[in-house]
Structures are given as structure tokens and as C-alpha cells.
């Protein structure tokens, strides 16, 4: 029990950890940038009146929501290059996996927001002659987005936590860097604790803002979509 903590080692490797954190944020940001529009497209596909579109899109969404992201990542990193003959580095495999994986969840956030809008709004838009796309863009989405923000931020938090998996395919994110430093210095306790703290420092404010927003929306009588 008489363990002597030594955070000096962590401090001396701070630049590596911060570089890892930057890489974590980079993968998260890119996955978000691709995952959001893809998620909206999937949501619209799932809400389509056309069965031939709705059914396969639903299957894709459910598949990516119901399988572990690490399996998806390994499939994209190890299996896909063999199937296509295209080399794929850890970074691209990670961005690809987490874009698709998060889009499946964003699709459900979008869908929840869209269906939470009363039918009367669609009908009023239709009654003045709007096409479905116009009604969606001008009337439904602007109202839905407000309700979706908490659920959306919640997904961003989950996404960033999930990106730690990129360490398992040797992409130098925060966890990967921490692991390297821990092995080199034989100080896993300090290094992994600090890594956890770094994640917490980024994610906790996000969590707090989710709760703040939910409270504010609840007070203004808005429902939030989940």
C-alpha cells in the first residue's frame, strides 16, 4: 500500500498525451462531420413511405446500433481491405467506422425529433401547397432540431468515448499514447489516471450542458426527443 505516486513522469510526457487528446478530438470531429448528414439521410430513408427504401435502411441502422463498435472497427480495418484490395490505414478505418456507427445513432435522434412534431404541422404545410421536402425543411426540421439538441449532445459524448477503440488498431489517440507511456515508464497508475481525468475534463462540461439544456427546454414547455 505504501505506493509513492509520481506524476512527474506524466508531466514529462504531457506533450504526447495532449497530442493523443488532439487526435481523439480529430477522429470525433470528423466522425461527427460525416455522421450527422449521413444520419439525417438514414432517418429520412427510414421515414420514407416507400417500403423498398425504408426496410433496408432500417436494417442498416439496427445492425450498426446492435453490434459492438469494436467488431465494426476490426471488420473495416482487417476485413474490408482484403475484400476491396484497397489499403486502409488506422486513421481512415477509424473515421469510416465511427462515421457510420454514429450516423446510425444520429438517424434515430433525427427520426425521434421528426416524429415528435404533431401531424397538424405537416398538414398545415401541405394545405398551403408545400411539397414533402419543403414541409420538412421549412416547418418540421426547424422545430425538431431544437428538441433534438440534448439527445444529439448525448450522442457526441458517447461518440467521443467510443473513439478510444481506435487505440486497438494502433491509431495514436489519447488512450494509445497513455498505454505507450505506461509501458515505457512502468507507471500505469499515474498515466491511466491522468488519461481518465483528461477525458473527464472534456466530457463533463458537455454532460452538464446537456442537463442545462434539457431543464431549459422542459421549462419552456418543450418536449425533448430521445
Amino acid at each position: 500500500m505504501g505506493y509513492e505516486w509520481d506524476f512527474g513522469i506524466v508531466l514529462r510526457n504531457a506533450d504526447l498525451l495532449l497530442l493523443g487528446l488532439a487526435n481523439t478530438l480529430k477522429v470525433t470531429g470528423l466522425a461527427l462531420a460525416f455522421g450527422l448528414p449521413l444520419g439525417l439521410a438514414l432517418a429520412l430513408g427510414r421515414l420514407s413511405p416507400r417500403r423498398w427504401l425504408r426496410a433496408p435502411v432500417g436494417l442498416v441502422v439496427e445492425f450498426f446500433r446492435s453490434t459492438p463498435p469494436i467488431v465494426q472497427l476490426f471488420w473495416f480495418f482487417f476485413a474490408l481491405p482484403l475484400l476491396t484490395g484497397i489499403e486502409i490505414d488506422p486513421f481512415r478505418a477509424s473515421v469510416l467506422t465511427f462515421s457510420i456507427q454514429s450516423s446510425a445513432f444520429f438517424a434515430e435522434v433525427f427520426r425521434g425529433g421528426i416524429v415528435s412534431i404533431e401531424r397538424g404541422q405537416w398538414e398545415a404545410a401541405k394545405a398551403i401547397g408545400m411539397a414533402r421536402g419543403q414541409a420538412l425543411r421549412r416547418v418540421v426540421l426547424p422545430q425538431a432540431v431544437k428538441r433534438m439538441i440534448p439527445a444529439f449532445l448525448e450522442r457526441v459524448i458517447e461518440l467521443m468515448k467510443t473513439t478510444t477503440l481506435v487505440a486497438t488498431v494502433s491509431y495514436a489517440d489519447l488512450l494509445y499514447q497513455a498505454n505507450n507511456i505506461a509501458q515505457r515508464t512502468y507507471r500505469p497508475l499515474e498515466v491511466f489516471t491522468v488519461a481518465a481525468v483528461l477525458y473527464f475534463v472534456v466530457l463533463f462540461p458537455l454532460s452538464l450542458s446537456v442537463r442545462g439544456l434539457e431543464r431549459r427546454l422542459a421549462r419552456s414547455g418543450e418536449t425533448t426527443a430521445h
Binding site: 398538414e123 398545415a124 394545405a127 398551403i128 422545430q143
Partner: peptide
């Protein structure tokens, strides 16, 4: 769509666009 554009409708629950 053009039919609806030329026929106005007023609903029981107004259905104004709240935003």
C-alpha cells in the same frame, strides 16, 4: 400540390408554425 395552393384550409387547432 398546385390544387392545395389554390384551396385554403383553416384547421380546428390552428396549426400555426410556432417557430
Amino acid at each position: 400540390i398546385p390544387i392545395r395552393a389554390h384551396v385554403g384550409m383553416v384547421f380546428q387547432h390552428f396549426n400555426l408554425f410556432p417557430h
